[in-house]
């Protein structure tokens, strides 16, 4: 055998988990069975990530793992050890300055109850970064991974298109 077998993290015991959360080091302890969203909310106190169906359908818990949108409910905290995690708490430029995407959601009524919003923002934030020229079709395809029961999606699509436009236009001083 090339290397000594790695340690087995015992079931029912807590083990250290460390990763980068919104650019800062974060850490705590988790049993192997703890899902990433529970670790974020209950261990780290980052309650911006919401928990819906817990089997990967609704998209409420979507965060970015190493830059890509992913379901926190389908990721174990121990799997995320060493990763870069970004959550809705990392979007605003400052406590009193929303990101262009968040601002567009506010302006276009892209949310009502707000339960699904953090997940949708994390998916769209990744899309707008990866594909600044994206159009409605791509936005709708990305949104197909999310359920929203309030808005009927149309205002969300409008908000995403407005945010894409705002991010493409160079800022005026």
């Amino acid at each position: 055998m090339s290397r000594q077998a790695p340690a087995v993290l015992d079931a029912g015991q807590r083990h250290p988990v460390r990763f980068t959360l919104n650019g800062r080091k974060a850490g705590g302890e988790a049993e192997p069975r703890m899902l990433l969203h529970d670790f974020l909310r209950h261990v780290l106190g980052a309650t911006g990530t919401h928990v819906g169906c817990e089997h990967g359908i609704c998209g409420a818990c979507t965060v970015q793992i190493d830059g890509a949108p992913a379901r926190a409910c389908l990721t174990l905290a121990v799997q995320a050890d060493g990763a870069e995690i970004r959550t809705v708490e990392g979007l605003a430029l400052a406590p009193d300055r929303l990101s262009a995407l968040q601002e567009a959601f506010r302006a276009h009524h892209g949310l009502q109850c707000g339960f699904c919003t953090p997940g949708i923002l994390m998916s769209l934030d990744a899309l707008l970064r990866e594909r600044p020229d994206c159009g409605e079709a791509e936005i709708r395809e990305t949104l197909s991974g999310h359920l929203c029961r309030c808005t009927g999606y149309t205002p969300i699509v409008k908000a995403a298109l407005a945010a894409a436009e705002a991010l493409r236009v160079p800022h005026h001083a």
């Binding site: 087995v8 993290l9 817990e54």
Partner: peptide, 17 residues
Amino acid sequence: MKPARFAYQRAATTEHV
């Protein structure tokens, strides 16, 4: 819905798996 308990091992080589 939460998983039942299990142990976890992060393998470094195919042989470990």
